[in-house]
Nucleic acid binder design. Structure first.
Length: 669
DNA sequence: TGCGGATCCCTTTTT
DNA sequence: GGGATCCGCA
């Protein structure tokens, strides 16, 4: 028997015009069962590359084909990009109705629900969503406020505080528990930390701020406390489909449960072996608990892999077999052939980069296009040296993951000027704008903000607020900008105004302003697609462009024939002909942060598994040795523990020295 | 009060 | 190499 064939058009699956889709011809029996499943709860355990997305697409098409109103299907997935892509493919398969399916991330779904019922959660005039950086800034202000000048150094820094709070919320634990379990060294400061947490909650209320976690919590609380709202939402959807269920946390699982209602037409798809978001509270036990919450659950397993050649699957199975928790699947393929995955060690980081560049050269000469090659790594800074080598070799690449476009100072600056107009109570954005003005520091910024707030006249209140300040040309320019923006309530016109105002500031602040200027132009290009500033800002917080700026923002078509550099987290769900995993070095991957805790190590292992299963035909793992690690003050030289025990039968080991090409290597010791 | 320079720290993954 | 903080000068 053959693997089911995929009819394709431009690489995408297509149906047969208006003819019924021949599900049984294009899906394997398990996929078919999932796609055509009727009513009731369904759990699909889908191994890597087993056609999970495909199955979901066909299920959406099937439901629509059978007459379900598209809007009444709710598809929750991990990123908006993923769900858009899914619906696009479903539309190709059936027809444009599929594009109308409701969907998005849990956070964007929660946002939509809360906007509709804002009054019920105490925000009759709406709310703004703050991202992680904003939330840290707010915590920072509180931290400075409450600490007597002498003990501020004793307190955890703002990012640590933010992590503590977020973990407590996402894991549904008390702050005390989190501190005692994961931050013992701050046990003495627990009272102050708790006080900061409470003030943080208060400040958010005062400013109508919701952070990422609040979106989920408020949504869950709304569903729990208001049966009428819950009924309305339940009756809005006939079917709920959740992708990547292994990466949901307790609150998200609860939301799913609350939405399912009596009908329980809920399908979740996931793979416990690919759970890599425990650090933000994801609980892969949600998958295991699902049949308990929905006793009538039907379970389907997808184990046949259509992505990778057998040697890659063998290695992946070996990787996950070493896990403490046993996983109940084993991937197999019917496609033969393929070479053993390689583990290549080099002396130093640069030799690793040179190896990757040379291999990419070889692949290209063999006709593999660059966009079929990816380099994956644990943390985004791991690719710095490689990026230099790629530039030297004139190999174009896009980098995904890590620092985001919206994290950079100049983009945040621009967004802050929009935010003060649409949310004049937003203290953080006011501070940000005011501190950019010459001669204005924290003290003046605070006074000005309070004066504007008292006016209760929106951002233009700045023009009439009584400010006891000396003449300040910079501030006058800001006033002019605000007046002009206020007089022109068209988002499309704001870009130019802010640009003209901000450009001199940008030039004075950053010596690399040409690059930053291009970023800002890109931002305005994205902005043009929006009518309402509120929608634009909300999207920038909830779904910021994921590529790390430069010229290839995802606004235009994906850059043609370009190598992909990506964190493993951002590579989830994707696949390439050839994959390089770099820095498979003990202390880097697994990261030294994980070495002490068994659970974190297990997550690192799953991460390695996710990385390896991205490859279709070739897999190269590299391990630079003799790396001095500043954090531990030691020299790192051991390959990742996940590879150590794997026999020669599954992994070919060699040593690469750029000066005299390759040397085979029998064994590591 | 603002600001530039010196010194200390730590360096992950994402909505 | 970049933040956060401190300190001294204008």
């Amino acid at each position: 028997m053959h693997a089911p064939s995929k009819p394709t058009l431009n690489g995408h699956e297509i149906g047969h015009g208006r003819l019924p889709i021949a599900y049984e011809r294009v899906l394997n029996p398990s996929q078919l069962e999932a796609a055509t499943f009727g009513q009731g709860p369904l759990l699909v355990i889908a191994g890597a590359g087993s056609g999970k997305t495909r199955t979901l697409i066909y299920r959406v098409a099937r439901l629509v084909e059978q007459g379900t109103v598209p809007k009444r299907i709710l598809l929750l997935s991990f990123t908006r990009k993923a769900s858009e892509e899914m619906l696009r493919r479903a539309a190709l398969l059936l027809d444009a109705r599929c594009q109308e399916v409701s969907g998005g991330t849990f956070h964007s779904f929660a946002n939509n629900v809360l906007r509709r019922f804002a009054a019920k959660i105490g925000y009759p005039h709406g709310f703004s969503i703050i991202d992680r950086a904003d939330s840290e800034d707010l915590i920072h202000l509180i931290r400075k406020e409450i600490s007597a000048a002498e003990d501020i150094r004793e307190l955890p820094r703002k990012s640590t505080l933010a992590s503590m709070f977020s973990r407590a919320v996402n894991k549904c634990r008390s702050l005390e528990d989190i501190i005692y379990e994961e931050y013992q060294h701050f046990g003495d400061q627990i009272d102050q930390i708790y006080q900061i947490w409470q003030l943080y909650g208060l400040r958010k209320k005062e400013h109508y701020f919701l952070d990422y976690d609040d979106l989920l919590v408020c949504c869950q609380q709304l569903l729990t406390s208001d049966p009428a709202v819950r009924e309305r939402l339940i009756s809005s959807y006939d079917y709920i489909l959740v992708d990547e269920y292994q990466d949901t946390n307790k609150i998200q699982a609860e939301i799913v449960f609350l939405l399912a209602g009596e009908k329980g037409n809920i399908m979740v798809v996931g793979d416990d072996a690919q759970s890599i978001y425990a650090f933000r509270g994801a609980d892969h036990k949600n998958i295991i608990d699902f049949p308990r919450r929905f006793p009538a659950t039907h379970i389907i397993k997808l184990e046949e892999n259509y992505r990778s050649l057998q040697p890659i699957l063998d290695l992946s199975n070996q990787l996950i077999a070493g896990a403490a928790e046993k996983y109940s699947k084993c991937l197999y393929t019917r496609r033969g052939g393929g070479e053993l995955p390689k583990l290549v060690s080099t002396i130093g980081e640069n030799a690793q980069s040179i190896y990757v560049v040379r291999e990419i050269g070889r692949l290209r000469s063999q006709g593999v296009p660059l966009d079929q090659i990816a380099v994956l790594f644990r943390a985004s800074f791991h690719s710095f040296d490689l990026e230099l080598e790629l530039n030297r070799a004139a190999i174009p690449f896009v980098k995904v993951g890590g620092f985001k476009f919206t994290d950079s100072a100049h983009i945040k600056d621009v967004l802050a000027h929009i935010k003060i107009l649409i949310a004049p109570q937003d203290r953080l954005s006011w501070y940000r704008c005011l501190l950019l003005v010459d001669k204005i520091g924290p003290q003046s910024a605070q006074r000005i903000f309070e004066a504007v707030r008292k006016r209760e006249a929106g951002a233009v209140g700045l023009l009439s607020a009584p400010l006891k300040l000396k003449a300040n040309p910079g501030l006058d320019r800001l006033k002019e900008l605000i007046a002009a923006m206020d007089a022109t309530p068209h988002l499309g016109r704001w870009g130019e105004m802010i640009f003209n105002y901000y450009l001199p500031i940008l030039k004075a602040l950053h010596d690399d302003h040409p690059r930053r200027q291009r970023d800002i132009e890109q931002l305005f290009y994205i902005m043009e697609r929006y009518d309402r500033a509120e929608d634009f800002i909300a999207d920038m917080v909830l779904e910021p462009p994921n590529t790390a700026m430069e010229d290839h923002l995802s606004v235009t078509e994906p850059a043609p024939d370009c190598l992909t550099l990506s964190t493993i987290h951002s590579a989830k769900g994707l696949e390439w002909n050839t994959v390089f995993i770099i820095w498979a070095l003990e202390g880097r991957f697994p990261t030294h942060h994980a070495l002490e805790q068994e659970e974190m190590l297990e997550e690192e292992r799953r991460l390695m598994y996710v990385a390896a299963t991205r490859a279709q035909r070739e897999l190269h793992i590299t391990c630079p040795t003799q790396i001095f690690d500043r954090a531990s003050q030691t020299c790192l030289y051991e390959p990742s523990r996940f590879l150590e025990g794997i026999s020669e039968e599954f992994l070919e080991r060699s040593y690469f020295d750029p000066r005299n090409a390759f040397q085979k290597k029998a064994h590591f010791t």
